[in-house]
Design a protein around this nucleic acid. Sequence first.
RNA 1: GCCGGAGUGGCGGAAUGGCAGACGCACGGGACUUAAAAUCCCGGGACCCUACGGGUCGUGUGGGUUCGAAUCCCACCUCCGGCACCA
Length: 817
Amino acid sequence: MPEPYDPQKIEPIWQEYWARERFAAADTTAEKDLYMLMMFPYPSGDLHVGHGRNYILGDCLFRMFLMQGRRVLNPMGWDAFGLPAENAAIKRSIHPREWTLSNIERMKRQFRVWGILYDWDKEIASCEPTYYRWNQWLFVRMLERGLAYRGKSPVNWCSSCKTVLANEQVVNGGCERCGTTVVQRDLEQWFLRITAYADRLLEGLDRLEDWSEKVKVMQRNWIGRSEGAEFTMRVEGRDDVEGFSVFTTRPDTAFGMTFAVLAPEHPLVGAVTTPDRRAEVESFVERVRHQTEIDRLSTEGEVSKRGVFTGSYAVNPFTGRPVPIYLADYVLMSYGTGAIMAVPGQDQRDWDFATAYGLPIVRTVQPPEGWEGQAYVGDGPAINSDWLNGMHKAEAIARATAWLEEQGIGKGKVNFRLRDWLISRQRYWGTPIPVVYCDRDGIVPVPDDQLPVVLPTDISFGAVEGNPLAHSPSFLAATCPKCGGPARRETDTMDTFMDSSWYYLRFVNPHVHDRMFDVDRVSDWMPVDLYIGGIEHAILHLLYARFINKVLHDFGMVPDDEPFTVLFNQGMITAKSATSGKLEKMSKSKGNVVAPDALIARYGADTERVYTLFMGPPEKECEWTDDGVAGAHRFLQRVWAHQDVVAAAAGREGDAGADARLHVKTHEVTKRVHDDLGRYHPNTASAAMMELSNAIGEAAERASEGALRTAYDTLLRLLHPIAPHITEELWRALGHDGSLLRAGWPTFDGELLARQQVTLAVQVNGKLRTTIQTAPGLDAEAAGALAHEAAAKWLDGKEIVKVVHVPDRLVSFVVRG
RNA sequence: GCCGGAGUGGCGGAAUGGCAGACGCACGGGACUUAAAAUCCCGGGACCCUACGGGUCGUGUGGGUUCGAAUCCCACCUCCGGCACCA
């Protein structure tokens, strides 16, 4: 009698074996075959079953590829810089590095317990100087080419804590720690010029055929390309003021401009404010400065309190008439020119504003008959527009733009919503930005031979507010690389998205230490063939990574300008929230996490893997249920018990019919598993394997030993990617040597499947009436005759108008009478 | 508001123009057991009829295309996600 199924006992043995035999090691000096990658995680410590979905799916595919004999690079590493480590340091007086490294160990252990294989020889952690050194090197290269620059940006500032806050740290307009009202403050910050790549980032999306439409649309929205025109307006009666530019997507409506609006931060605000309006304008500007951008952009609030008249007028160049200049909080300095022409007839916001301030409204596009709305944004003939009258939108836009150019006051212009990437962080636990400030030479990049600029260790966390680096004398003191004089080191560190923007290149050859990566090897192994990760990275990480990859492509270091050929976004795992009672994403704060430890102690990792992959298609969100887990475990119990079936059949001749049925089922299931895993549907692949298992159970008493053995043998191989431990154990119990990972992937006999009897559906007037079993490949005549006989009851006395025959699927009679 | 995705038994889901509900969960019945658990077997879309058979309806709603629609088209409803005074 064999032993009962005891995952506790067998799983650690196989985990040890796989690690010892280095099954996942990939030789990247050899020619490329396949590069698959899971988004590398932030090492936050504990992983729950929701996190598992991603890694288990990846491991399932990886094991299948290995069994198919492919050479696969499947590395793992750590996005190891970031705020939580620093907060932990402040709270528990533990260095961020120690905290991070111990979390990494915990997570590696979790991967091992899940039975997940990675090529750990390629492991990287972005917090190591051997890694972040190349962030710095890349930054200097970008600085040299003008792709990195220092500029002013409004940021959230808490005057009490004397620090910049992330948007997430601003709660109801106040600092989350002390409650002080947060103000917008212009600070010098480092930027990367991602806007220079806006058009290419947009264009590249069209070539990413194997990315979901959803992600591509999200990126397109984020980049936000809009075509229009820019032109200058004079300020009436003020030859001392240069005038200001406005951007519009509707130059065709300019005859209807009845006022103009500047952003409150616009440099011209002081100049155009007349003395009698000064007090009111200043108090308005002051109030806006105290709003966070989020408040400002919210659609809440009284329109009548959102703007103020400056006292000056601009001249509408189309009509030559003056229009009042207002300020309004909803006009943003960071988009377009920070100033707009307002055309209430064709823009609803302008309509609302005009109504609230008693400004005139002139329609310049004829709305359709019966139009009862306010602003009309659709197409129609131009009216009240002099030489544009009668033209439709597209033509009128072209004419108006051409006119602006003729007049020398404007031109066609493309604007983007995308802004340059602000990478400065006033934090310790990140890559130091490698520049020094010299009184004589200004901003000087640190020369390559002095990289990396290493994070200092003489830091006491929480002792001072703000960035600890700014209080480290050893770090601050530097020598100017140009003049040799004393200089002050930059204390900002880089956004951690910089780290994750090129790590996939480093994985190919992480032990090269004199270069960012080996260009030859990377040219061979890139792009990543399959990239798996959560939808939450749809914009930021994936846009930044595409940007940096394009930059490196332009530097001649990377062959392709898009880094990820196929993107697979897995859906979230949800569970009933303890707080809201609704289905929500599994997370600590919702109190609905299922920890793997207890689950694995009770059922084993294979059960968690089977359930995770079976519960639904991996790209969709899915609810975790304990009952479902129990069902997955029962399936594995049955697979385990089938070894007795094979043993009990020893020497049996068996029933030929039962053998044949089992044989066909085996091939059919092999094909389905092959197809389903190929399209990333382990859920239906699992269902097929359950059918094969059930078929073995049904044939247990009648089939021959050989047939049962072959079916079981195939089941174990097909099931290995999903439940690796139990299948290895059973494989050995069946008398095989070595690992299933080297046992080959089952193949199916397509001819055999094609020879099987088929079931033809027989329809009369579209209704299914009966089905018939026939040999495959019958022609229309033969199939029609058989079907006619079978459906005689419904065809008697009727005139057959038409017969539709779909080979091996159905025969459909259309009758009359 | 705009853009994407989705709506199928009690539940997770399967089927992407051709037998709706594979597979699993939950449930009901039976076997085994002193009993229970575990395990195994059987049954489950709804309604109707002259009931070991047969019929009608059925994939969010309403229409359309087709011999045939969960699947394609049009309109609408609901839910989820993204963007949102972006000029």
